[in-house]
Structure formats: C-alpha cells, structure tokens
C-alpha cells in the first residue's frame, strides 16, 4: 500500500473527515427541532459538515503528492514541553483541591525548575515572589475571587 508523503497532513485530513461526519450527525439531530427544512440551528452545522468532508478529502489527496514534506521542527526539549503541559493539567486540578494560591506556589516552583532549570531553592524563592505579586495585584488590588480549595 502506498504511504502518504505527508503523514501529519494525512492524519489532519482523516481527522477533518471524521469531524465532518460528527458535525453532520449533529446537524441531523438538530434538524428535528427546526420549523423549516433549510433554516434553523442545523443549517450552518450541515454546511460545515460538508465543508469538512470536502476539504478533508482534498487534503487527503494532497498529502499523497510529493510536493512538500511537513516535518516537525526537531525539539530537543520535548521532555520539558510535555512536563510543562502535564504541570498545567495538574494545575487545573490542584486549584480546585488546594486553592489558587497554594496551587500557584506549587506549580510555578515546578515550572521554574522544569523550564528555567533552576535549583529547587531558587525555584521556590521565585515561585514565592511570583505568587506574592499575583496575590497583591489580582486578589488584594483587583479583588478577583479565586477558588480557595477544599480545606478553607
């Protein structure tokens, strides 16, 4: 079987066609709530479903052409990147559990360690300064209310 020249575009095309099918199914579901056949909440989803499928198919064909091979820029720091994304995900959960300030202190210390490669001592000091500044500006001065967590 002939493999596509541009695998990322090929995958993008497949995802686009899948999205087109999903959007069309939703349009079909919404059709039941519309008074008119052509006008209603289903109209734009129906058009978009078609656009996704047609353009996805065009990209699929294009991905087999030997024009330009998309290559991901080599990232020697992929581990830092993935760790950073994982930390951000953990941050979302932590804010709800331990509250905004504690979560910010913990996660920013890890971020300074991962991104800046500082020692733990420096990372914790930087995190404490950052959290303190955010507290003064956004909580004390601008009065934004953040989650306080389960313990408060």
């Amino acid at each position: 079987m002939r493999l596509p020249h541009n695998v990322p575009d090929f995958l993008g095309a497949v995802l686009s066609i899948a999205a087109g099918v999903l959007v069309s199914l939703e349009a079909y579901r919404l059709r039941a709530y519309s008074l008119s056949r052509y006008v209603g909440d289903h109209t734009l989803p129906a058009i978009l479903g078609l656009v996704f499928v047609l353009l996805g198919a065009a990209l699929l064909v294009h991905s087999f052409r030997n024009e330009e091979r998309a290559k991901a820029p080599p990232s020697p720091h992929r581990t830092s990147l993935l760790l950073c994304l994982a930390l951000l995900g953990a941050y979302c959960l932590l804010i709800d559990i331990v509250g905004y300030l504690t979560a910010t202190l913990i996660v920013s210390a890890f971020l300074f360690r991962v991104v800046g490669r500082y020692g733990w001592g420096t990372a914790i000091v930087l995190a404490a300064v950052l959290t303190g500044c955010l507290y003064v500006v956004f909580i004390m001065w601008l009065q934004i209310s953040f989650p306080t967590g389960f313990f408060l």
Partner: peptide, 14 residues
Amino acid sequence: YGIMAPVILMFCTI
C-alpha cells in the same frame, strides 16, 4: 526565558 515563561503562563491562567 526560564523566568518569563512561568510568569506568562500564570498570567494566562488568570
């Protein structure tokens, strides 16, 4: 950048 990046991420969260 090691200092700027976490600071920007925290601002983005807010």
